[in-house]
């Protein structure tokens, strides 16, 4: 942020010409995002991210290790329950790897969604005291959960090395999959966070809603178990393309599912658009109802 003072010493008289004019009035209709302003607040985004990571693992012995334990133990439980007991098909790869890949992607999605959806409520004290682009809050959720994702991703790589699996050449498409994942989780998160400021029900519904949602995505079972007639409808869920894409890349369960990924992209962009517009629309009331 450029300061208007050439000389930082106290007592410098400001030259009038440098002052920018700003008008505050009741906003009307739909408002776009002020990307320039958002860029000026990148340092705040950084420190909010650091804050949530540090605060989360403060005074814990394992610290960031929890980011490994969470997906690892879930995977172990699913392997026993769904792989060994229910004998769910895993497209010919060990069920452990099958569900680990699904869970690494899904955990990132669900953590980002729930964290961004509650970001405004948990930071209500900031919203009512200081001005800053409110978008910074849900965005910082994405970044702090991104760190967890990186750690669990490293865990995945370790197991791929142990099982001597080589990724498919579509590895270069991985950022695309992650982008879909981000657009979907952030879009939904933005929408729900704006709603949650006013209706606290969202907070309660979210916890178990996300648990149920997991079964609407191919985390513990493969998409090929869904009847073929419904597969296209099923793939409207952007996470279908993402998870099956992940498996195609790392486990070679199937050829890269371009059609599902393309469908997912379209839906994800739509969700993100709706989310961000709704967020901007509701933004003006945040401080009054938070």
């Amino acid at each position: 942020m450029a300061t208007a003072f050439g000389n930082e010493k106290m007592g410098t008289v400001i030259t009038k010409t440098e002052l920018q004019e700003k008008i505050i009035r009741q906003p009307k209709g739909w408002i776009g995002v002020d990307w320039k302003e958002l860029a000026r607040y990148k340092d705040l985004l950084w420190f909010l991210t650091i804050r949530s990571i540090k605060a989360k693992y403060a005074q814990s012995i394992l610290g960031v290790g929890w980011a490994v334990i969470q997906p690892l133990f879930s995977t172990l439980v699913y392997t026993v329950v769904f792989g060994n007991l229910a004998r769910i098909d895993s497209n010919g790869v060990p069920y452990f790897l099958f569900s680990l890949v699904g869970l690494v992607a899904w955990t990132f999605f669900s953590n980002t969604l729930s964290d961004s959806a509650s970001s405004l409520i948990t930071n209500a004290n900031l919203i009512t005291k200081v001005y800053f682009p409110r978008l910074v809050l849900p965005l910082s959720s994405v970044f702090s959960k991104g760190v967890d994702f990186l750690i669990s991703f490293i865990l995945l790589v370790v197991f791929l090395v142990i099982y001597k699996l080589k990724p498919a050449p579509e590895l270069i498409l991985l950022p695309w999959l992650i982008l879909i994942l981000l657009l979907t989780s952030l879009g939904t998160g933005l929408f729900l966070s704006a709603l949650a400021v006013q209706f606290r029900d969202i907070k309660y519904a979210l916890t178990f809603g996300i648990q149920l949602l997991m079964y609407a995505a191919p985390v513990v079972y493969p998409t090929t178990n869904v009847p073929v007639a419904y597969q296209t409808l099923y793939a409207l869920n952007p996470m279908v393309g993402v998870i099956e894409g992940f498996r195609a890349i790392f486990l070679g369960t199937m050829p890269f599912p371009y059609h599902w990924v393309l469908m997912g992209t379209t839906v994800a962009v739509l969700i993100f658009g709706i989310g961000i517009f709704f967020f901007k629309r509701m933004e003006r009331t945040f401080a009054d109802v938070a």
Partner: peptide, 13 residues
């Protein structure tokens, strides 16, 4: 932090 219901403020700086 919050918006006015009507009227406006012009701030220079």
């Amino acid at each position: 932090i919050t918006y006015p219901s009507s009227g406006e403020v012009v701030m220079r700086g």
